[in-house]
Design a protein around this nucleic acid. Sequence first.
DNA 1: GTGATACCTGAGAGCAGACTGAGGGTGGCT
DNA 2: AGCCACCCTCAGTCTGCTCTCAGGTATCAC
Lengths: 225, 225
Amino acid sequence: MRVLVVDDEVRLADALARGLRSEGFAVDVAHDGQDGLHLASENSYDAVLLDVMLPVLSGYRVVQALREADNWVPVLMLSAKDGEHDQADGLDLGADDYLVKPFSYVVLLARLRALVRRGAQPRPVSLTVGDLVLDPGSRSVRRGDAPIDLTTREFSLLELLMRRAGQVVSKTDLLAGVWDANADNDLNVVEVYVGYLRRKIDTPFGRRSITTVRGAGYRLEPGGD
Amino acid sequence: MRVLVVDDEVRLADALARGLRSEGFAVDVAHDGQDGLHLASENSYDAVLLDVMLPVLSGYRVVQALREADNWVPVLMLSAKDGEHDQADGLDLGADDYLVKPFSYVVLLARLRALVRRGAQPRPVSLTVGDLVLDPGSRSVRRGDAPIDLTTREFSLLELLMRRAGQVVSKTDLLAGVWDANADNDLNVVEVYVGYLRRKIDTPFGRRSITTVRGAGYRLEPGGD
DNA sequence: GTGATACCTGAGAGCAGACTGAGGGTGGCT
DNA sequence: AGCCACCCTCAGTCTGCTCTCAGGTATCAC
């Protein structure tokens, strides 16, 4: 049973590692998101304990990246925050379970064992925001019953916005997430594609689900309108 | 939980039986296809582990016979061969899952548990998508009442698309699934064969059931049009 | 109001992905 | 050997997606 622990609080991470090793797990440790993602991608773990607040790359992003790479290792998210939304966000992004700090070690162990037992579960997620439905498997999008035809770029863009529905996503983030890491792209291309999206998912339905937040980015309204 | 193990390698069969018994299963063992079929028919098991290469009656034939007798006990096929086609053949004939020897015992156990949990699933041996019907057994294809003549390659391609109907299948996946795992093939061959297929299953009927999803792959429309 | 900034959008060039027709190679059959 | 069906490669064509650019419009500060 191999487990990866990703947490920037070194003392906590070490304590966890020690504890888990004494339970018979083989434990690797990373202290930032980038290292964590790298290790998780390169190795085959039975579970990953992942802090949300991480340097370089947040826990959310790590899970997201893993899932996008079709890596369905069970992920147990750890977070200092306890807002309802954080939990929902974490699970939305593909985490399998969620634990709020401070947590009891016994509880952690129980949840971890449950995760490992359940194993990796490729899930056919379809994202739903209001009456918008996006299914990555069939690469299809619907508003209610009306199918919507999107190009690859438009699809990726909408997917990212839906994964972060209700949150403001900066143009830089969108560029990094939808376009390749090559930052040599003009931010204007994001504006252009948000325009295309609006014309396909909003205008025909008299909606306005993608809000511009001047100076900050765009937000997909959770209500769907 | 009753399980039947059918394998002519006595040592393997015994090892499996011992292991499964220690997990709490009640295990019966048969060493050839005829015995296996007989036991499976007479008793009500929760799952059958079935080797492909068997004396007297091959594993394929056993499954086939069981299904024809309307016996839908979950069957996990074990095989020493690992060609893509063997796998497809096994599943075609009505096996529920497939494992290539040598396999890890842990994996076997996990798959077996999953099968038992799912239970017996009556299903027709032929694939149907809209008015397209493909019968792997007789290697025949029909659109409605009109029989369609396909070459081997075209048949495998359509079969894979039908198994994933509604989902987008990438050209890489198609290449890996229909052509051999040898990746030295050009992806263009997939495009060519999709073209051939369209000319046989769509054009004559004025349909368009294979959709191109630019940059992603192809999708066989579940509606059949 | 005026200017500055941020965002939107129409037009069009460029290009990559997909389609298709032609043809060579291979293996089975007569 | 000759024929045929099938498999695959190649190159040319075409479609329509992507992105840039430039000018227009909304929003904000003063």
